[in-house]
Design a protein around this nucleic acid. Structure first.
Lengths: 132, 132
DNA sequence: TTTATTTAGGTACTTCAATTCCTAAATAAG
DNA sequence: CTTATTTAGGAATTGAAGTACCTAAATAAA
């Protein structure tokens, strides 16, 4: 069973966690609670948050009653920003498969892959944490 | 650098090879030539063709002047069929992330993931080997 | 009939990303 | 001040995809 859209477990965790934190504002949430709510590995989620924290999406507070909170307004945090911090920058310009050269003069997918990639990109960019 | 659409190296090889074979009809092509044309590992490509052959997409002929040829008309082989043989059946009905339960009553992606997945699916289903 | 070519398929190895483990550092609470 | 809680981050492990290796089976050509 396969997925057509490329969203890793880590990126999914990031997006769902951020939505939970947004929903729980202004109280912060810690990894333990988030992992329980999402029913995922606490250590994996902790790693994900190291990235989110280092990239300025969340502010971390250590110690008892510590945890994470949004570091900017919810509407200023797009799904795309979260996605790219975890998965890396999305490449829309080159071959969607990352090839630099090809036997085919014109891509066997025509323009469909580019069309769809652009659609996903725009969709992720449009969505943000304001609705939670 | 990340990809929004989920197409593995193996699936890409399968699609490109099948397009080359379609283009080269009625002569068959062997793994050696295909691997050279696509500039990929011969052994990896051979593995891919074992799947394509077992699933009735290509007919194999061993020995000198052997190789692979399409086992049905080019227009009857969709990109989706090739894709699913390599990646496994696409799942459109459940959560696009493969989760069975979720803390959120309604998916954080709204209906966007389903919409895009359906778009990709339909696109792959529509495309076939007739144009090569 | 013999030989060279080519696919079939099992097993093992490699590589890279995903995940886990373990210890350190920070900090609130008592 | 001490302790318990929580994040930080390096190191180790796991797992999946890709790759290589090897032998067998088929078959065309010589």
């Amino acid at each position: 069973m396969s997925n057509l859209i490329n969203i890793s477990e880590a990126a999914s965790l990031a997006l769902h966690s951020m939505a939970l934190i947004a929903r729980n504002q202004p109280q912060r949430m810690n990894v333990k609670v988030l992992a329980r709510d999402l029913d995922v590995s606490q250590t994996h989620l902790a790693k994900v948050f190291q990235k989110l924290s280092k990239n300025g999406l969340v502010k971390s507070v250590r110690g008892p009653a510590g945890g994470f909170e949004l570091d900017k307004p919810a509407e200023d945090i797009s799904f795309l920003e979260i996605y790219e911090i975890i998965e890396g920058k999305v490449n829309l310009t080159d071959c969607p498969l990352g090839k630099t050269h090809c036997v085919f003069e014109t891509c066997i997918f025509g323009d469909e892959l580019n069309r769809i990639s652009a659609d996903i990109y725009a969709t992720l960019k449009e969505m943000n944490l304001s609705k939670f």
